[in-house]
Computed example of a mutant assay.
Amino acid sequence: MKGEVLLQVNNLKKYYEIPQGMFKKKVVVRAVDDVSFTINKGETFALVGESGCGKSTTGRTILRLTEPTAGEVFYEGQNILDLSYRDMRSLRSQLQMIFQDPYASLNPKKTIRQILMEPLRIHRNFTEEERLEKILRILHIVGLPKSYLDRYPHEFSGGQRQRIGIARAVILQPDFIIADEPVSALDVSVQSQVINLLLDLQKEFDLTYLFISHDLSVIEHMTDKVAVMYLGKIVEVADTEELFKAPKHPYTQALMSAVPVSHPREVKERIILTGDVPSPANPPSGCTFHTRCPFAMDICKKEFPKAVDFGNGHTANCHLYIKSEEEPNHVAYHTHA
């Protein structure tokens, strides 16, 4: 039933240790650092942020394509991080992924028939005729003709390869799909076709998506809820309409100002962030965004802010909205945000 919690992520962490030689300490890269969110059945939840903020690592860690350092991931009330290899493998028919690069994610030595046949052989007990029937049906749904069955991935365009990747993810009729930048490698003319295909498939198969992207125009078009990531942490979560109407976190406001205008006469104030994105191997203390934030205060350098609830599920981790004796001017910004 739509509205029920399907996936819950609690305090998820993924750290990478980089050796620096025999006599030096290892460097720890905090790719995903204490991330929590909830996805309801039937909705499209987006992770958005700059390249390198940890979006893709979060998606891969949820599906255990990369093993987490710490945290919990509950799927229908079951912590999948506690499952054995065998139990996790049987669950993968319900948890699928669409990868960013449609060419690298397909085996170049296998035909489309073999690529789509493989998940049916592993996860379902179908006859050969039933498998072929399902393959032809899913090809029809994603808009590819039957004659493409015995071709290899290199014989297709980028858009066609991504449709094949989508067909492979959907053929088992999963409940949950992580779409990792599914249109970023495609031409603009093809992007809308793939986005509409994903929306059509969601309606037909009652799918739930975790949609990972840095393209805010795509996010606005096809998602229900958005979490904004910066340097491995989530800094704001809100319904899509609410986030685009009234972003609270300074980083989110800067991202929104970068969205191209829809009309030549439209005027938009561009927020230019100064400085470079800090290294996740040596993140700043306190709020990780304070080195680039135009409203940074002393407390921002000391403490990572708690989430402030603005109602209707809209939260932002920012000291500008937290009462503080040290920073009496925080209220002035709150009234103008």
Rank of each mutant, 00 (worst) to 15 (best):
P260Q: 03
S262D: 13
L231S: 05
V235H: 13
I219G: 00
D215A: 00
M256W: 04
L255W: 13
P264K: 13
E242Q: 07
K248T: 06
I219D: 01
S257F: 02
D224Y: 14
S217A: 13
S262E: 14
V261F: 01
L216E: 04
V226R: 04
A227E: 06
F244S: 02
P260E: 09
L216R: 02
V235Q: 09
S213K: 02
K225G: 08
S213N: 07
D215Q: 02
T252I: 07
H249F: 11
M256R: 03
D239P: 06
V259F: 05
E241F: 07
L255P: 10
S262I: 13
T240D: 10
M222I: 14
V237T: 15
M229F: 02
S213T: 13
A254T: 14
S262Y: 13
M229Y: 01
A258P: 06
S257V: 03
Y230D: 10
L231E: 08
P260S: 07
V259M: 02
E242I: 10
V261W: 10
L243S: 09
A254D: 11
I234Q: 11
F244E: 00
T240P: 05
H263R: 15
Q253R: 15
A258T: 12
V261T: 15
V235A: 11
V235T: 11
I219L: 04
Y230Q: 10
E220F: 10
A254F: 12
V237P: 04
V228I: 15
D224A: 08
A258F: 05
T240E: 06
Y230A: 08
T252A: 14
T240G: 09
V259D: 03
H263P: 06
A238Q: 09
A227Y: 05
D224H: 15
A227W: 04
E242D: 09
K225C: 11
L243T: 08
V228N: 07
D215G: 00
H221T: 06
A258N: 08
M222N: 10
K245L: 08
I234V: 15
V261Y: 05
E242Y: 00
Y251M: 13
P250G: 09
V261R: 15
G232V: 06
V259R: 04
A238G: 08
K233C: 13
E236M: 11
L231Y: 11
A227P: 06
Q253Y: 11
S257N: 02
Y230N: 07
I234S: 04
S213V: 07
T240R: 08
V218M: 05
E236Q: 10
I234P: 08
M256S: 05
V226D: 09
V237S: 09
Q253C: 09
V218E: 03
S257D: 05
M229S: 01
P247S: 12
E241D: 13
S257P: 01
Y251E: 08
T223A: 10
V226Q: 05
A254I: 14
T252S: 15
H263A: 14
V218T: 04
V228D: 06
L216I: 02
T252E: 10
L255G: 12
E242W: 00
L255R: 13
K225S: 12
D215E: 03
D224K: 10
T240A: 14
G232Q: 05
D215S: 00
G232F: 08
D239W: 01
I219T: 03
V235K: 09
K248H: 07
S257H: 03
K245C: 01
E242H: 01
V235E: 04
V228E: 09
K233T: 14
V228H: 07
